[in-house]
Nucleic acid binder design. Structure first.
Lengths: 195, 195
DNA sequence: TACATTCTGGACTGATTGGTACAGAATGTG
DNA sequence: CACATTCTGTACCAATCAGTCCAGAATGTA
């Protein structure tokens, strides 16, 4: 079995994800993808099948990484600190470029809601997975007595998600990270989780 | 000066806006637009110049109408009731189809942020105009003593806007209006404006 | 070194994109 | 009725789109 693959698949996938993340599905053309991924057309179709298949793979990658951030913070942070840790990790502790790109799942939902329902459902599902992770951590906090058991953990998680979605849109507006920081503080105080 | 225009310009513009609103800029093709507007290619270019020019006109129309809703509610509602009135008017007191379309300005920002900066700036400006209208009404309420003068009116308006953006994204997810209603109540209680 | 196998670059396809050109239909004025 | 003017339908354009195809380059095995 001679001639091995001449490019790093996961590296190419990562480059594609960056591009889709920044420019969306429709506006990212195949030639642009090939250039960013550093591969040729035939290698592309041999390894990734279609543009849409590649997009799905990128979306899953992005969703998994985002979920990993939440789960990761859960290891070291108290559940009450989780929303702040998540906002800081994804909006402030990243390059200005990444912050401006917002969240790939949110971008996808807004771009493709009426255009490609299956992709919309996939992105929605991934967002719900993140919301569930928050809900689980709040339930845990209630059992530990860290969090008032009167509040419904699911509703609190839903509030965090609405705020989160709002902040993602704000980060795609002209706003710099300097403007974003007080917004995050303000949001946390709305949630009753201020410092 | 013989032969008058054979179509209703504002009606055609309205049809175009509906389509752009639902499907976004890139995914709406010229043939689709012509069909929805009920005019032919030459009439289109004679009256609207380019697809992009038409989109700008639609975006301005949408922004003006949204702002008119805020200003309109201001005539009859107390400033403290304004956020609820706005959410209800734009998310619940509309058809399910319209609710699912979200907000055209938000959709535009997310679709075109990196693709067409001038359009992004236009949509951002329109969103800021709405935020300003909220801020003005809160300042007024403080002078009337309806609202605690300790709170900063601008920051309260910014909070309303973040929540608003979050709800617009939620409305583009699979969520029905039945699921949206408790989210609105929950959001108002975060803002300290619950019933 | 020779072969089988696998990958790669570039030419090509048909469809679709936004935009233009122009002939002819329609209508108000004289 | 004739003309000038304006609008509209259609054919057309170059560019770009995603996707296919195949000749030839590259490499592990024998």
């Amino acid at each position: 079995m001679p001639r091995t693959l001449e490019f790093d698949r996961s590296q190419a996938l990562n480059a594609a994800m960056k591009l889709f993340w920044a420019r969306g599905y429709t506006a990212t053309s195949l030639p642009e993808l090939l250039l960013a991924m550093g591969i040729s057309r035939s290698s592309f179709y041999a390894s990734f099948h279609t543009k849409r298949d590649l997009f799905i793979e990128c979306l899953v990658l992005f969703g998994d990484r985002t979920l990993a951030i939440v789960e990761g913070e859960l290891q070291t942070q108290s559940p009450l600190e989780l929303p702040r840790a998540f906002f800081v990790a994804t909006l402030l502790d990243v390059s200005a470029r990444k912050a401006k790109q917002g969240c790939m799942m949110v971008n996808t939902v807004l771009e493709l809601a009426d255009i490609d329902p299956p992709l919309n459902r996939l992105a929605s599902k991934q967002l719900r997975a993140i919301e569930s992770a928050f809900a689980r951590s709040f339930t845990l906090a209630q059992k530990n007595g860290e969090l008032d058991a009167g509040l419904c953990a699911d509703e609190l998680a839903a509030r965090v998600m609405t705020i989160n979605l709002g902040l993602r849109v704000q980060s795609r507006l002209c706003k710099s990270q300097k403007e974003l920081e007080p917004m995050i503080e303000s949001s946390l105080s709305m949630l009753g989780l201020a410092a």
